[in-house]
């Protein structure tokens, strides 16, 4: 079977074929998810070298332990979980002085996350070039603490469901929900600096 035949194949079939030591089938699975896994690894480690290591380790581990993959979750959720674990291990090793934890350090009310309340234009992103917009969005995500960043990337960028995100990060559903809300509110706050409607500041003094 050629690669182009496999490109449209059902994931369960690919996994079954890969389990029978079909190298082409596993390579197709890798091609399907390598971009997302690399982006996720970059977001967690914030370091290109580490992200590349995580990417390789995740897929090599997956290949090695393919027989342990239970068909009751998506292959993508499974590989995400492996990649997240590898990435967290890297983070811990890198910052031996500072403890890196996926747990929340403090628990303040959501209302403390809202400081600036200013309306945005209808399509604020249109005022920026793609490159500029990309930089603004990336740097805002990078400024989030790791527990919030991972949840946000999986839920709102990679479009995983709440249940899949909980599975991938080994968190409870309420924990995913509360971290997602906090991440969204913090990003909203950061983006307001760039996206707020011009002139609204002046009106505030009238």
């Amino acid at each position: 079977m050629t690669v182009s035949d496999l490109a449209g194949s059902d994931e369960t079939i690919l996994v079954a074929q890969a389990r029978q030591s079909d190298a082409t089938a596993f390579s197709e699975l890798v091609r399907r998810y390598e971009n997302k896994i690399f982006r996720l690894a970059l977001h967690i480690t914030q370091n290109r070298e580490d992200a590349e290591d995580v990417l390789q380790e995740a897929f090599l581990k997956a290949y090695e332990h393919l027989d342990q993959f239970q068909g009751n979750s998506k292959f993508y959720t499974w590989i995400v979980r492996i990649a997240v674990n590898q990435a967290l291990m890297k983070l811990r090793r890198r910052k031996t002085d500072k403890s890196v934890s996926m747990d929340e350090q403090f628990d303040t009310g959501e209302d403390t996350l809202v400081r600036e309340i200013a309306a945005w234009d209808e399509d604020p992103e249109q005022q920026f070039s793609r490159e500029e917009l990309g930089r603004i969005l990336e740097s805002a995500v990078q400024s989030l603490e790791p527990p919030y960043r991972s949840v946000f990337v999986l839920r709102d960028i990679d479009d995983l469901s709440t249940e899949e995100t909980a599975q991938a990060l080994d968190l409870s559903i309420p924990a995913v929900k509360s971290r997602l809300l906090r991440a969204r509110l913090q990003l909203r706050e950061k983006l307001t600096r760039h996206f707020k409607r011009k002139g609204d500041d002046a009106f505030a003094y009238l």
């Binding site: 200013a118 309306a119 945005w120 960028i157 990003l187």
Partner: peptide, 11 residues
């Protein structure tokens, strides 16, 4: 409204 737009630009 601004949180909704935040989610939208990232998607």
């Amino acid at each position: 409204d601004t949180t909704k737009k935040t989610i939208r630009v990232y998607k």
